[in-house]
Computed example of a mutant assay.
Amino acid sequence: MYLISIYFDKKTNKILQWYIDKIAEKTGNHFMIENRVPPHMTIAAIEARNVDVLKSAFDDLNGKLYAGSMKIVSIGQLFPYVMYATPVLDQKLFNLSEEVYNAFCDIPETTMSEYYKPFSWLPHITLGKTLDKVQMEKAFQAMQESFVPFTAQYNEIGISKVNPHEDVGRFKLV
């Protein structure tokens, strides 16, 4: 499994990392920290035998995608294990998702995750992962006490391998 994700500027990273650290502190679940998962928002998830079949499509996106901002307005949960920050899906973010999907959808011997297709994608920024029921309750309480909506700036896109997280390639957005 390979992920195409956007990454944030230093200020946004600092805010998101603070929430990740807060959840880890309150829950005792340090999955995000121990696995060095940087703050990011996944745009596409692709099953492929190896990354080589994806590299040229990824490289072709360089210079075609734009940096931008998004409003992070709420906290959500993907039951039973994930706590995330929720951005507003505006036209600019939708277009970015669609361009990425179109770049990879016709590559032979790959499968795009149905959860990241246009009109089927729930934008989210994972703050806590592999949380059990008690940890999920503590994470929710931590976010209820500390989360404040903010505007995030994204300025890079990357391709990574999962389990464990490993960057394969990354470039700045225009």
Rank of each mutant, 00 (worst) to 15 (best):
L89R: 03
R170C: 08
T12K: 04
Q17L: 06
P123E: 04
I72V: 10
S160K: 03
Q144F: 13
P164K: 00
P108L: 04
M136S: 12
F8C: 02
K92G: 13
F94N: 04
M143Y: 05
L96W: 03
T151E: 14
H165D: 11
G128D: 03
N62K: 15
L65R: 00
V148Q: 15
E137V: 07
V162H: 07
D52C: 09
P80R: 02
T27K: 06
P118T: 03
G28P: 04
I46L: 03
A67C: 11
E109F: 14
M112Q: 06
K64T: 06
T111Y: 11
E34P: 07
P39Q: 01
M143Q: 04
S120L: 12
S160H: 06
A24M: 02
V82H: 05
K22R: 13
Q153W: 08
Y116G: 00
I75F: 11
A57Y: 12
N50D: 15
V174S: 14
Q144K: 14
H40P: 05
H124M: 03
F94A: 07
K64D: 11
K117A: 13
D90N: 01
Y154N: 05
Q17V: 04
N95G: 07
K22Y: 05
F171A: 05
E109Y: 15
P164I: 01
N29K: 05
I125S: 06
Y154Q: 06
N50V: 04
Q77R: 14
Q77S: 11
L127P: 11
F94K: 03
W18F: 15
F171M: 03
K55S: 05
M41L: 12
I43H: 00
I159W: 01
W18M: 14
L16Y: 09
P87R: 00
S5P: 10
T110N: 02
P123Q: 02
A45F: 11
E47Y: 12
N29V: 00
D132A: 02
K11P: 08
A45E: 07
Q91D: 15
M70H: 05
P80C: 09
Y81L: 12
I6Y: 04
L127Q: 13
G169R: 10
R49S: 14
P149Q: 03
P118M: 10
H165N: 09
I6H: 03
D90H: 01
I33D: 10
F58Q: 01
S160V: 01
K26G: 07
H124K: 05
I157R: 00
A139P: 08
F150G: 00
E109P: 06
K14C: 08
A24N: 07
T110H: 04
S56I: 08
V53N: 11
A48M: 03
T27Y: 02
V100A: 03
N102L: 12
K55W: 09
M143I: 00
A85N: 08
A48D: 01
N50F: 11
A152W: 13
V168D: 10
E109H: 15
T126V: 07
M41Q: 08
V37E: 13
D90Q: 02
T130V: 13
C105R: 15
K10Y: 11
D21G: 12
Q141I: 10
M41F: 10
